[in-house]
Structure formats: structure tokens, C-alpha cells
Amino acid sequence: MRLFLQDFLDNGQELNNFAFMESDYVKNRSVLDQVAFFLPSKSFIWHIDYEKIEKNKIFIVPVSFQEYFQKIDETIKEFFYLS
């Protein structure tokens, strides 16, 4: 926990995120498909897993760079129906 808090301070007390969003410019409407929150660290990426937020549970998981970017690649392919 101490390491996460130090990384959080080093990142300006902010989490980073990326989102997959679908926009319909004709109907002037956008829908967020997925949002991922993360915190960069020197040796890995902290992934913020909030899928059980309804049960008041949030998990902070350290993930290797390789594994994290592999998952992003898979998610992009899935989002664009390439897999």
C-alpha cells in the first residue's frame, strides 16, 4: 500500500485513464463502452479494478507492462471486432 501511495503522490495525486467510446454524430450522442483507470509506476502499472463497485469493493492490482499492454491490445481488437 505504501508503494501505491508513493506512486499516487508522484503522479500528482491523479489516476490516468483511457476510454473506448462510440459516437454517433448524426444523433449527437456518445456512449462510453469501457473506461480503465491506472497509475503508472517505475516497474509496473497499477490497474484499478472497480468491477465490484456495487459491492463497495475496489481492487488495486500491480500488472507488468507487457501484460497490461497485451490486454490493451486484445481489448482494442475486441472493440473493433478484429478478434
Results as ranks from 00 to 15, higher is better:
2 R>W: 13
2 R>M: 14
3 L>Y: 14
3 L>D: 15
4 F>R: 04
7 D>M: 05
9 L>P: 01
9 L>C: 07
10 D>Q: 14
10 D>K: 15
11 N>W: 00
12 G>A: 00
13 Q>H: 04
14 E>P: 01
14 E>T: 09
17 N>H: 12
18 F>A: 03
18 F>M: 06
19 A>Y: 08
21 M>N: 09
24 D>Y: 06
25 Y>F: 14
25 Y>E: 13
26 V>L: 13
26 V>W: 02
27 K>T: 07
28 N>D: 13
31 V>W: 11
32 L>F: 07
34 Q>P: 02
35 V>C: 15
38 F>L: 08
38 F>I: 04
39 L>H: 01
40 P>Y: 01
41 S>H: 04
41 S>R: 03
44 F>R: 07
44 F>L: 09
44 F>V: 04
45 I>H: 05
48 I>E: 04
49 D>M: 05
50 Y>T: 03
54 E>Q: 12
58 I>H: 12
59 F>Q: 14
60 I>D: 05
61 V>P: 01
63 V>K: 11
63 V>D: 08
63 V>C: 07
68 Y>Q: 00
68 Y>S: 00
72 I>Q: 08
72 I>F: 11
74 E>F: 02
78 E>D: 12
78 E>V: 09
79 F>Y: 07
79 F>W: 03
79 F>C: 12
80 F>Y: 04
81 Y>D: 15
82 L>N: 05
82 L>K: 10
